[in-house]
Each structure stands twice: as structure tokens, then as C-alpha cells.
Simulated scan of single mutants.
Amino acid sequence: MKKYKDLDRILLIDDDMATNFIHRKIVENSSIQVDVKAITSAKEALDYLTCSGVYVNNDQVLNAGIIFLDINMPGMNGWDFMEEYKNLDEKKRARIVVVMLTTSLNPDDQATAAKFKDIATYLSKPLNAAAVARIADQYFKEITTE
């Protein structure tokens, strides 16, 4: 299992619980030693990132290193989330890799994702272990233990 500096947790943001379950298992079965947190609403995810709402004074909040974000969710969708995400502290955002993960085949969605400087990449569902490993290798430094 590989361990990466500043990659303690992967945050899954998708309103579909079955998708979150499958993606959690994919991450857990990848070659990366990381905690996985699945959240079913973009609003709750913002609360998590800002330690507000139900996450105030919660010692279980680990810094997310990677966020896999769905576009189409009820209430606050992935684009709305990104608009609010821009308001987070810049230092905090600099330590998080946001990946838009969607079933959308609409080329406009990929073009919209490219307009957000905080979105590192755009992937189609389902997530796979190779993609998780590739993102970790690309954006984080592996911790070697000898």
C-alpha cells in the first residue's frame, strides 16, 4: 500500500448511495492507504470542508486530499458546489485536488469544468483503481518508509 503526503482522505460527493458504496470499495481496494468519506449532498460537503454545520467541533474531520465530485445532484449540484468552493481559503484549496466524476456525455459539461481552475481533471464514471492511483501519483508525493 502506498502512502502519500497530504493525502489522508478522499472525499466522495455523489447523491447516489450505491455509487458512493462502489467508489468507496474501489478506493479501498486500490494500492493507496487512505481514508474514504462519502457524502450525499454538496451542501454537506461544504460544511465538511469548512468544519461547520454537523461538522463543528468534530474530531473525525480529516483534510480531504482528493474530492471526486458528481455534477448532477438535487439542490446544490456540482457546479453550484464549485461556485461556493471558490470562496474557501486559498491555502486550503491549494491542498485539494478536485476531480469532476460524472456520467454526463455532454461536451458542454467538460468545457464548463475546464473553466474552473480548481478542477484538476474530468473523468467518466465509474471510478477505477487505476485512475485513483494515477491522480495520487500525479498530485501527491509518495511517502517512502525504509
Rank of each mutant, 00 (worst) to 15 (best):
51 C>G: 00
111 A>Q: 15
98 V>K: 07
123 L>C: 09
24 R>W: 12
132 V>I: 14
92 K>E: 13
128 N>A: 00
86 K>I: 05
7 L>M: 12
3 K>Q: 12
4 Y>G: 03
19 T>C: 12
68 F>C: 02
57 N>G: 10
69 L>T: 02
129 A>N: 05
80 D>T: 07
111 A>D: 14
25 K>P: 03
53 G>K: 01
49 L>M: 14
10 I>R: 12
86 K>Y: 15
123 L>N: 01
88 L>R: 06
139 Y>L: 02
72 N>L: 12
102 T>S: 11
136 A>S: 09
26 I>Q: 08
56 V>H: 04
146 E>A: 13
68 F>N: 03
146 E>Y: 15
121 T>V: 09
30 S>C: 11
146 E>G: 12
122 Y>L: 08
97 V>I: 13
131 A>Y: 13
47 D>W: 10
127 L>Y: 11
45 A>F: 00
4 Y>N: 04
135 I>V: 07
85 Y>W: 10
19 T>Q: 15
113 A>N: 01
126 P>G: 00
66 I>E: 12
144 T>C: 13
80 D>E: 15
14 D>S: 05
7 L>I: 05
5 K>E: 07
137 D>I: 01
141 K>I: 05
112 T>L: 14
19 T>P: 12
60 Q>G: 01
110 Q>H: 02
107 P>A: 00
48 Y>E: 02
78 G>C: 06
41 S>C: 06
126 P>F: 03
123 L>R: 07
48 Y>G: 01
115 K>M: 13
29 N>Y: 13
1 M>T: 00
78 G>P: 08
13 I>V: 15
77 N>W: 14
117 K>W: 14
109 D>P: 05
32 I>S: 04
6 D>Q: 05
57 N>T: 00
34 V>M: 04
119 I>E: 13
116 F>M: 07
33 Q>G: 04
25 K>F: 04
17 M>N: 11
60 Q>F: 00
50 T>D: 05
72 N>P: 09
11 L>N: 08
138 Q>S: 02
52 S>Y: 05
97 V>T: 12
28 E>W: 02
65 G>L: 11
3 K>F: 03
34 V>R: 07
50 T>P: 06
124 S>P: 04
6 D>Y: 08
39 I>S: 06
79 W>S: 01
26 I>G: 05
32 I>P: 09
17 M>L: 12
71 I>V: 04
132 V>K: 10
140 F>K: 05
51 C>F: 03
44 E>Q: 12
9 R>C: 15
141 K>N: 09
56 V>Y: 03
125 K>D: 01
119 I>L: 14
114 A>G: 11
8 D>V: 01
79 W>N: 00
137 D>V: 01
76 M>N: 04
20 N>S: 09
135 I>S: 10
49 L>Q: 04
43 K>D: 03
13 I>R: 06
143 I>K: 14
32 I>E: 04
83 E>V: 07
89 D>R: 06
86 K>N: 13
108 D>Q: 13
114 A>T: 04
14 D>T: 03
61 V>S: 10
42 A>D: 02
46 L>F: 12
125 K>F: 01
41 S>M: 03
12 L>F: 15
91 K>Q: 13
107 P>I: 01
64 A>I: 10
58 N>R: 12
32 I>C: 08
17 M>P: 08
103 T>L: 07
23 H>P: 07
24 R>H: 15
21 F>D: 07
57 N>C: 08
24 R>F: 11
50 T>F: 02
